[in-house]
Amino acid sequence: MSRIAAVLALLAMATIPLVAGEFYINLATQILIAAVFALSLNLLVGYGGLTSLGHASFLGFSAYACAWFSTRMGLGPTASVPIAILATTLMAAFFGLIALRATGLGFLMITLALSQVLWGLAYRWVGVTNGDNGMSGITRPEPFGISLASAGNYFWFTLVVSTIAFAMMTMFVSSAFGSSLQGTRDQPLRMAALGHNVWLVRWLTFVYAGFWAGVAGILYIYYHKYIHPTSLSISSSAEGLLSVIAGGAGTLSGPIAGAALLVLLKNYASAYVERWNMLLGFIFVLIVLVIPEGIVPGTRRLLGRLRRGDK
């Protein structure tokens, strides 16, 4: 049932470039990229109970690495993309070693501190990152000779990648490993007593989440063809976290809904109000105070109540 719905949704989305103008196509591309990023963070936050405030590190690092290898080393995408994703995954492995010395608020603070270090580095290490000017001059790849220069083609490319990402992450959380992960979220000590290596489960999830955030970073850099230290900032991480929490942590569709909401708000609201960060702050406070479980579970609960009320 839900599989049919997913296929239909996918088909409907595939027609967007045929019916919509460039602005909307680009908007849809941005939503997909944000959704892949939010889904990867959701593995940690929703399924692992590990709230990271530094997940933009992986998106930003991967984008920077891809840009650097393309523009400075002159590598083609067949080399720069895998290298960037590999480097990001390795960095996630290393960050995970440090951050997972703690859980809860300690974990949150360490991930935040680590990402701020990276952000500061992007600003200061001008020789490599071009500092506040950001890195540009990236051209989109041409897989199998198909140019991705147009908005429509890049959307389709993003749709294919994000569908794979969604399928893989869905598989991950419904697998035996995913069940162990959710067990370590709910009862870590009991899981250890049952023979599950809680630390390793968390670390592998951290690495996997870093990998997919790295993939999102590749989509990001080829979409914008530009990268700036802001992508590594605390507000980037916070936007991802807000997508997850606003949509519904620990659900599959929640982070997608949250990402869509945030991208749309950012595009429309910021056209009228200049104060995106303030708006972001207010949404944060509002969501936490009003619908802490997120939009998708919240709506589901509301619909359930209405349905019961009808009978």
Partner: peptide
Amino acid sequence: RLATNPLGQVLVTLGVSFIIADA
């Protein structure tokens, strides 16, 4: 109001920090 929700508290302080900074 979020005394039983330490994660919620952190997120609210984060939101407040954005509001203050932008203000």
